[in-house]
Nucleic acid binder design. Structure first.
Length: 328
DNA sequence: GTCCAGAGGA
DNA sequence: TCCTCCGGAC
């Protein structure tokens, strides 16, 4: 159960949040190498040099690493004001998730994951993260199981097996043809460049085919227990905008992309919430705060939500087109 | 038929 | 910025 891995993440988070100095205990909580990063962010995402989209935004090294241990760190980590009641909102969503009897994470990663060799565990995290995107949970689980049963959850094995076999085994995950091809390429890169392990930084993960910001951050958290940033998918993006938790700089307009949401959200959301917020909002977004016709009537936090009961169904470009067609 | 959901290519 | 990739739920 992913809960196990989440457990270890929680341990890390608590220690990171409460330590005031960098101790060996804290350091040992990271299974990964720590890469101090100072990133200048660009407006347009390019595969080679990227982290995010807000121009001029810089992260202090200690912030990126996950430590708020020196004097200036707190101010830096909190340079944007938190929206009112955000704690109550998260608490309310947590309660709803529990009563709906959902898994807190919304994702099941490898029951046997803890018995695996760390390198193999990380590769399987990367593989299942890739499969899970744009795919229902049970479908991902089935595909991952089949890969495992065939011994295909290591870089070495994937590199050797032919693409057609992978394709058949992972069917019917979303975009299985492309994913099979990407998986082969990724396995080869992991083998050649990383000795069968996976990359340990966001930048290097982003160089892998089929890995964008969403999966890169997810893999850093689940694979390396290293919270570099929030894993923002379409649910986190939508819900944060509905709640008014993020907006374009100096305006009240919604953020335009998940990447913009991620950077904006990271400016005020305390670090210990970065890892758990994705599974929490994904569950909430699938059941209650749905993209089309959200169930505000049964939502326990609607009183905190500026969009409650007035979310107009977002008109997609496709439906806009068909509306236009009908008019013509 | 429409929408979902991230990444990549035009 | 839009389109494409996929099966499947609705």
């Amino acid at each position: 159960m992913f809960g196990l891995s989440l457990g270890s993440i929680n341990v890390f988070l608590i220690s990171a949040a409460t330590k005031t100095t960098l101790t060996t205990t804290t350091r040992s909580c990271f299974s990964s190498k720590i890469h101090p990063v100072s990133v200048t962010v660009r407006k347009k995402r390019s595969k080679n040099s990227v982290l995010s989209q807000i121009e001029g935004q810089k992260f202090a090294t200690h912030e990126i690493e996950g430590f708020a241990y020196n004097k200036g760190a707190k101010e830096l980590a909190q340079h944007s004001e938190s929206p009112a009641y955000w704690k109550k909102v998260l608490e309310g969503i947590r309660k709803m998730s529990c009563s709906a009897d959902e898994t807190a994470d919304g994702r099941e990663f490898d029951k046997e994951a803890d018995t695996l060799d760390p390198k193999e565990r990380r590769f399987s995290v990367l593989a299942s993260s890739l499969l899970s995107s744009q795919t229902k949970e049970h479908v991902t689980d089935g595909a991952t199981q089949r890969l495992r049963q065939n011994g295909l959850l290591t870089a070495d094995a994937i590199d050797k097996v032919d693409e057609e076999t992978i394709k058949k085994l992972i069917y019917p995950v979303g975009f299985y043809t492309r994913k099979a091809s990407n998986l082969k390429k990724i396995a080869n890169i992991c083998l050649v460049k990383y000795g069968g392990d996976i990359p340990s930084t966001i930048e290097e993960l982003l160089l892998l085919p089929g890995v964008g910001p969403k999966i890169a951050h997810l893999v850093m958290i689940l694979g390396w227990n290293n919270v570099q940033g929030i894993c923002v998918d379409t649910h986190v993006h939508r819900i944060c905008n509905r709640l008014g938790w993020v907006s374009r700089s100096d305006t009240k307009q919604k953020t335009l992309t998940p990447e913009e949401t991620r950077v904006t959200l990271q400016q005020w959301l305390p670090r210990e919430e970065w890892a758990p917020i994705n599974p929490l909002l994904v569950g909430f977004g699938r059941t209650t705060c749905t993209p089309l016709r959200p169930h505000c009537g049964e939502c326990a936090i609607s009183r905190f939500c500026p969009s409650a009961f007035k979310v107009t169904p977002s008109t997609s470009s496709k439906s806009k087109k068909s509306i236009l067609k009908k008019k013509l």
